[in-house]
């Protein structure tokens, strides 16, 4: 029975991720007073990209391996998370450190693809992506460690769903604020889309990818967005829990939609930061998140 929950997780994430990306694009267009594409546009984009011919512009094995590795890592993360408050097949074997490693593996595969492209723009994009990854990872780890410290266990269920079991203490509220302020860099939207800067760097690390490879990378970015929105919902707002599995899924999807609305509104009204400004902003975030974990150790 447990493996069914894992498979349903994967199917739901694969089906709904482009829809949320379409909502983000439509809302960005409305903020800019224009009509915007239809909400199901990313489905058309991915289907069209899968139908183009494949041009292997750099003929080495990391170039061909990178998109597959990225998509595989994020689908593995989706396979193990408890969506809909149900423990699933892999919950006996994994804990929060696995989740952090798999997310980092996705970022490393983007770097692998970019550095094997033999293109200067890709190299610049890869170096910026490296800096972004380094500064984002401590905040992600602190979010998951907060629950682990409260319950003295590293299991996923305790870190994700039972954090607010004892009410909203000071450390949890501080962590909520820090996560919201840092959310834009996790999902790679303005003001922190430095690595995939469209006009500045001619699309950064993915410049040499075309057709089906690019479709896999785009799917990776969409599922990563949806995963981070889900992380916010599951760690900080889990108080609505009915017993039915399908009602839980629908409620969590609605909450994820609200988080995406916030992402779209913040993304469309902000400019893009330079890399040194972003690092300074993030240093403050890392300091605050460590304060939150310290407070929770002390018992607040």
């Amino acid at each position: 029975m447990d493996i069914v929950y894992s498979l349903i997780n994967v199917v739901i994430f694969i089906l709904f991720a482009p829809l949320f990306e379409g909502v983000v694009r439509k809302l960005t267009a409305r903020v800019q007073s224009r009509q915007g594409p239809p909400v199901i546009q990313p489905y058309f984009d991915i289907l069209k990209l899968l139908g183009k011919t494949r041009i292997n512009s750099a003929d080495n094995w990391p170039f061909k391996l990178a998109p597959v590795m990225a998509l595989a890592s994020i689908v593995a993360v989706v396979f193990i998370i408890p969506f809909g408050f149900r423990q699933n097949f892999a919950s006996r074997y994994v804990d929060i450190i696995t989740v952090v490693y798999l997310l980092t593996l996705g970022g490393v595969s983007v770097l692998l693809g970019a550095l094997s492209s033999k293109n200067t723009f890709a190299m610049i994009g890869a170096s910026r992506e490296m800096v972004t990854m380094i500064m984002v990872e401590p905040v992600l780890a602190m979010t998951l460690i907060l629950g682990a410290v409260k319950f003295k266990s590293l299991a996923l269920q305790s870190a994700m769903f039972n954090v607010t079991g004892f009410g909203y203490s000071v450390s949890i509220i501080l962590m909520l604020v820090v996560y919201l302020l840092a959310l834009q860099a996790f999902v790679g939207k303005q003001p922190f889309d430095i690595s995939e800067a469209e006009i500045e760097l001619l699309e950064g690390p993915f410049i040499e990818y075309s057709g089906p490879n690019y479709a896999l990378f785009k799917y990776y970015m969409m599922i990563k967005q949806m995963f981070y929105a889900f992380l916010f919902v599951s760690v900080f707002i889990p108080f609505v829990e009915t017993g039915f599995y399908f009602a839980d899924i629908v409620i969590q999807l609605a909450e994820i939609l609200l988080v995406f609305v916030v992402i779209a509104l913040v993304g469309s009204t902000n400019p893009r930061f330079r890399i040194d400004q972003a690092v300074k902003y993030y240093a403050v975030m890392i300091f605050l998140s460590m304060c939150a974990v310290g407070l929770s150790v002390r018992g607040f």
């Binding site: 409305r30 903020v31 007073s33 224009r34 009509q35």
Partner: peptide, 9 residues
């Protein structure tokens, strides 16, 4: 502020 002109396309 964007709500006033609406969609101008």
């Amino acid at each position: 502020m964007v709500l006033k002109p609406g969609v101008v396309t």
